[in-house]
């Protein structure tokens, strides 16, 4: 039997199970992603998408299975700043008294000393990241005064400043304006060319077809996983969404 070289995979989640006080949220889920791959995570509300992200960031402990990041443990991936998480707009306190600059600087915290003093290189990384998301004129704006799209871009900038090779994005396109959507699309292409690995959850079929090389359909466990063209079929989608047809979910054109 051919032995698997785990270092080939950026993300290798094997049979992971997560339960919250005995209530199963995700079971026997598998995922393998290589550098430069973009994978869509699709499922109903409560199907375990956020739980999957929580497991991959180490925010919840998995009760069974194994997660390897670049062939190493999750803990060493955290130490190396390998994974960046971009939350949903609803997932953050928008009234928190903090500026765009300070949020993006948080992307550098993991590589700073204990006082989190910014070095010259950190300041440059933050500046570059904010430039890439086109928010340079909003540096000191409190996040509460930003639009949904600008807020999304702020958190993308944090992930860029972190220089993570794996990006986990929870609903990156929800609640954003056209300009932000276009900017995120362009960033995805750049990230792919830079060899970053992206896992994004979305409710939008068109985005899956447009950006994702791979798609992971989940409903508490993996319903189907593979190349988008092969896996993203009406039958699989119907199974994922508990028997509801894709026409009903996304309109007849899709």
């Amino acid at each position: 039997m051919e032995s698997i070289n785990y270092q080939n995979f950026r993300i290798d989640a094997e049979n992971i199970c997560v339960d919250y006080n005995g209530k199963v949220a995700l079971y026997d889920a598998n995922l393998r992603l290589k550098p430069g791959q973009i994978c869509g995570l699709v499922g109903m509300n409560g199907a375990g998408k956020t739980t999957f992200f929580n497991a991959l960031t180490g925010f919840v402990n998995i009760s069974k299975g194994k997660i390897r990041i670049n062939g190493e443990s999750l803990r060493s991936a955290q130490k190396d700043q390998t994974i960046a998480y971009v939350p949903q707009n609803e997932g953050i306190d928008s009234q928190f008294p903090i500026s765009v600059w300070d949020v993006v600087m948080m992307g550098r915290y993991g590589s700073m000393n204990i006082f989190r003093c910014a070095r010259e290189s950190d300041v440059q990384a933050v500046k570059d990241a904010i430039e890439r998301v086109d928010l340079i004129d909003q540096l000191s704006t409190p996040i509460g005064n930003l639009s949904g799209g600008q807020r999304k871009r702020t958190f993308l900038a944090r992930a860029i400043a972190q220089r993570a090779s794996i990006l986990l994005l929870d609903e990156p396109f929800s609640g954003v304006d056209i300009r932000t959507e276009k900017l995120i699309s362009e960033l995805f292409i750049q990230f792919k060319n830079e060899g970053k690995t992206i896992l994004l959850s979305t409710h939008d079929m068109i985005h899956v077809r447009e950006f994702c090389d791979l798609v992971l359909l989940i409903n508490k466990t993996v319903v189907a996983y593979g190349e988008t063209s092969e896996v993203f079929t009406p039958e699989n989608i119907t199974t994922t969404f508990g028997g509801i047809s894709p026409d009903f979910l996304f309109g007849p054109e899709s």
Binding site: Y85, P87, M106, G110
Partner: peptide, 22 residues
């Protein structure tokens, strides 16, 4: 004072703190 910024991050976005190894 020592953990001022870490605590701010913890209050604001504990998941990010966890993700970057804090």
């Amino acid at each position: 004072s020592i953990f001022r910024k870490d605590l701010m991050l913890y209050c604001f976005d504990p998941r990010h703190a966890k993700t970057v190894g804090i």
